[in-house]
């Protein structure tokens, strides 16, 4: 039976068909907001029309509360930024008690995002979310580069498959695997995610990097290294989406440096079924909603009337 989220459909967006499906998760349009860049949505109420969004991925939730890294947690770099927030969050109980009641009332899909320190912790988090009303899908953050105590599950196909298959047993909700670009090749890991039972892939998390204050001879971030995001990483994300789409038969949500409708269209053509807006929420809080408004015009410009018809239509040179 097809599984439909509690999302209101964007019927007002003219005759254009913007709807997309990530496995059993159907979204009114392909424009979502990325984990860790949209808080728990409440903060954006004055900037964003929630009913227009394809979906919201709130900030990563862990089993226990985490205080996060010391400051500086961010530093601006050329057309980008490095962050080492360190999964600062109040834990799953707080998420279910405080954030979810707000999120579930919003007229859009909610894709909860979790990170565990162990395979068992991922499974336990998924179990808690499986019973939670208002969670339309679950994204497993397998790739946060800032958590020194955890293992980066998504650097290795075996651990990726294991964590996803265990999580899979705990829920019927659509399950997305968010992968790291910080590997030699994403494709084998994406294949492992498919074998483990993921419904879709979110590509990519941040690219590990650093910034240095040479006068003080110190790394700028308190954590020494951080994750690069923003326009600087778009070519990397686009390449990984293109390569993975060619090799793995799972829907992909493209993330990385998206800041304009052209960027959105590039990801869709490269093979992404949907996209997430990340760092751009920081420097242009109203962007995500505006992109939804601009999407029909971009489709019209290439004489298309449906998002689904352009996904993965990249030609070979």
């Amino acid at each position: 039976m097809p599984w439909t989220p509690a999302a209101r459909r964007g019927g007002s967006i003219s005759i254009m068909d913007l709807e997309v499906s990530i496995g059993r998760l159907t979204l009114p349009n392909p424009i979502l907001v990325a984990s860790g860049t949209f808080g728990y949505a409440k903060e954006s109420a004055g900037f964003v029309d929630f009913s227009k969004l394809g979906g919201i991925v709130p900030k990563t939730v862990t089993w226990e509360p985490r205080i996060g890294n010391r400051t500086p947690r961010i530093v601006e770099t050329a057309s980008g930024m490095l962050n080492a927030i360190g999964l600062d969050n109040d834990g799953i109980d707080h998420f279910l008690r405080v954030h979810l009641p707000y999120l579930r009332k919003l007229p859009t899909s909610i894709i909860a995002n979790v990170a565990g320190r162990t395979v068992e912790e991922y499974a336990a988090l998924v179990t808690r979310l499986n019973g939670a009303e208002g969670v339309d899908a679950i994204e497993l953050n397998l790739s946060c580069p800032n958590v020194s105590c955890g293992i980066d599950f998504a650097i290795n196909p075996e651990s990726t498959e294991r964590v996803i298959s265990l999580a899979r047993r705990e829920t019927d909700k659509p399950l997305l695997a968010k992968l790291t670009p910080n590997v030699t090749s994403v494709a084998p890991i994406a294949q492992a995610a498919a074998a483990g039972g993921a419904d879709g892939l979110t590509l990519i998390n941040t690219v590990v990097g650093t910034a240095i204050d040479w006068r003080r001879r110190r790394p700028i971030l308190a954590n020494r290294i951080g994750g690069l995001s923003g326009p600087a990483i778009k070519p990397i994300a686009l390449r990984i989406v293109m390569e993975t789409a060619a090799k793995v038969d799972l829907p992909i949500i493209g993330v990385g440096g998206i800041g304009s409708i052209d960027d959105v269209m590039e990801f869709l053509v490269a093979g992404a079924t949907a996209v997430q807006i990340g760092t751009a929420n920081f420097y242009d809080p109203g962007l995500a909603t505006r992109l939804v408004d601009e999407l029909p015009g971009a489709l019209a410009a290439i004489e298309e009337n449906s998002v689904r018809r352009i996904i993965g239509t990249l030609e070979r040179n």
């Binding site: 860790g36 860049t37 949209f38 808080g39 903060e43 954006s44 900037f47 900030k59 996060g68 400051t71 500086p72 947690r73 961010i74 530093v75 930024m81 962050n83 927030i85 600062d88 929420n281 920081f282 420097y283 809080p285």
Partner: peptide
């Protein structure tokens, strides 16, 4: 005054 990326509560960079 702390370093801020968003100024409206979504990035968690400005903490004290």
């Amino acid at each position: 005054e702390t370093k801020m990326a968003c100024g409206y509560g979504v990035c968690f960079s400005c903490v004290c």
